[in-house]
Design a protein around this nucleic acid. Sequence first.
DNA 1: ACTCCAATGTTATTGTGTAACATGGCTTGC
DNA 2: GCAAGCCATGTTACACAATAACATTGGAGT
Lengths: 161, 161
Amino acid sequence: MALLGFERHDHDSCVSDTLSAAEAHCAEAGLRLTPVRRRVLEILLERHRALGAYDILETLAAEGLGSQPPVAYRALDFLVKAGFVHKIERLNAYVACAHPGDSHAPAFMICRSCDSVAEAQASLAAGALGDAAKAAGFRIERTVVEAEGLCPGCLKRGDAT
Amino acid sequence: MALLGFERHDHDSCVSDTLSAAEAHCAEAGLRLTPVRRRVLEILLERHRALGAYDILETLAAEGLGSQPPVAYRALDFLVKAGFVHKIERLNAYVACAHPGDSHAPAFMICRSCDSVAEAQASLAAGALGDAAKAAGFRIERTVVEAEGLCPGCLKRGDAT
DNA sequence: ACTCCAATGTTATTGTGTAACATGGCTTGC
DNA sequence: GCAAGCCATGTTACACAATAACATTGGAGT
Ligand SMILES: [Zn+2]
Ligand SMILES: [Zn+2]
Ligand SMILES: [Zn+2]
Ligand SMILES: [Zn+2]
């Protein structure tokens, strides 16, 4: 059992279920979930936290799946475009999507003390920024919504008040 | 005249007014708006767009105000902490605050075609993410809200539809 | 004058991300 | 079968972003 969001959950099935779903989705959409891509997604699911591209590359290299940066970045680009992975801009890191399948505008809560990340729904375009965009004539295509603060665990422990 | 947000405005007075206000605020708060810091803010106001730290450093170097990365980063750190400048995480770039004075949670609209940036208010904690945070027991301290898309000008021109 | 502290100067290094080009392997049309 | 094309991968080299660590300067306070 590990953390999903800030809650405990059945991690083994979460990994295998998500991988199966990704395979099915790729088969249906004509996308190719190649060994490297599949393994990168699996790494992100196993570790279940935000990882830098070079962290991932390190694991890949240890397994003989590629040792140069473009290998990791290309796999991540594919996974992000396919919606299986999100990039956390604030951390320059990547995390497996917690709501795969649904098309959604992700939002994240990032603990500055323990670096855990939880994914929520944003639908930002509906709020104040959506109004501002409409007023300005700006067409929103994608949103980055990231809240930084303290997770429940670190709050309870009193870490970094 | 140049762009503020996506509107034209009186740029000369916008630069000098903001600089004066920053000076006044620093004097009152006991902060030191040194020549490098002041010049970095002025560069950001003049160019009126998001600039990378190395872009700024280039200008500084040409003026003999410092030629090494830490010079630019230290000035930017100061200006960001003081609230005169925001970092755009999506672009790894910095932009002068368009609402100086008010304490606020900034939100940005970033044109993917011409790279212009407009600042709006977010008050994100009030929306859906605020509810999710409350439900999860997460304490939000800071928010990153950045919308990417097409600005009115690029839409009208049909750039990068 | 001496001390302290904040700001700056400088060197070196680490971290993040891409451009460009070569190779391999599968598919598709002939 | 075979050539052409396409997509993924391998590899080199580089560009851009950020910080660590240490030396130096210069004013404020005593
Ligand atoms: Zn997601
Ligand atoms: Zn935490
Ligand atoms: Zn602002
Ligand atoms: Zn534009």
